[in-house]
Amino acid sequence: MEQELTFGQKAVGLLFNPSGDDAVGQCKQGFADLIDQMNNLRQTSTSNDQKRHASVAITEMEGAQMRAVKALTWND
């Protein structure tokens, strides 16, 4: 039975790694863990401002993850 992906793993596209590059997988999982932390905070917080900051952090981590994967797979 396959384990369901976390919000963070879905957000970073953890299963999409056509080259099977371990560095890419590790990078994506690291960002997924951080995104999950912010998502958990967003779900449990009673502060609208804290929720907003967590949402912005998630969005910015998604962009940073894509750039990090691009850096790891860059070929000149």
Rank of each mutant, 00 (worst) to 15 (best):
26 Q>F: 09
38 M>Q: 14
23 A>F: 10
31 F>C: 01
29 Q>H: 07
15 L>F: 02
15 L>E: 14
23 A>K: 14
27 C>Q: 01
29 Q>N: 10
35 I>Y: 07
36 D>F: 05
32 A>V: 09
34 L>F: 13
20 G>Y: 06
35 I>W: 08
14 L>A: 04
34 L>W: 10
26 Q>N: 13
36 D>P: 05
30 G>Q: 12
20 G>R: 05
38 M>Y: 15
43 Q>Y: 06
43 Q>D: 08
28 K>D: 06
25 G>W: 05
33 D>E: 11
18 P>N: 04
22 D>P: 05
34 L>V: 10
41 L>G: 05
26 Q>Y: 10
36 D>G: 05
32 A>S: 10
38 M>F: 12
36 D>M: 06
29 Q>S: 08
22 D>A: 06
21 D>P: 07
22 D>K: 03
40 N>S: 15
35 I>K: 08
32 A>Y: 09
39 N>K: 13
27 C>T: 06
29 Q>I: 06
20 G>E: 06
15 L>S: 07
24 V>M: 01
33 D>V: 06
19 S>K: 14
31 F>I: 03
25 G>V: 04
26 Q>M: 09
27 C>P: 02
40 N>H: 15
30 G>D: 11
41 L>I: 11
38 M>A: 10
32 A>H: 09
21 D>C: 15
14 L>V: 03
30 G>W: 05
23 A>T: 11
37 Q>H: 12
36 D>N: 10
16 F>P: 03
26 Q>D: 15
26 Q>V: 05
17 N>W: 01
35 I>C: 10
23 A>W: 08
15 L>N: 11
31 F>W: 01
37 Q>D: 15
30 G>R: 10
34 L>E: 11
34 L>S: 14
17 N>M: 00
36 D>I: 04
15 L>M: 13
29 Q>L: 09
39 N>G: 13
26 Q>S: 06
26 Q>T: 08
16 F>W: 03
29 Q>E: 09
20 G>H: 08
16 F>Y: 07
25 G>A: 15
18 P>W: 03
18 P>G: 00
26 Q>H: 08
18 P>Q: 00
38 M>W: 11
34 L>R: 12
29 Q>G: 00
41 L>W: 12
33 D>R: 05
34 L>I: 08
33 D>K: 05
41 L>P: 04
19 S>I: 06
17 N>C: 04
21 D>Y: 05
16 F>T: 00
14 L>H: 02
22 D>L: 04
22 D>I: 04
26 Q>I: 03
38 M>G: 02
41 L>E: 12
17 N>P: 02
19 S>R: 14
22 D>G: 04
31 F>L: 00
21 D>R: 08
26 Q>R: 14
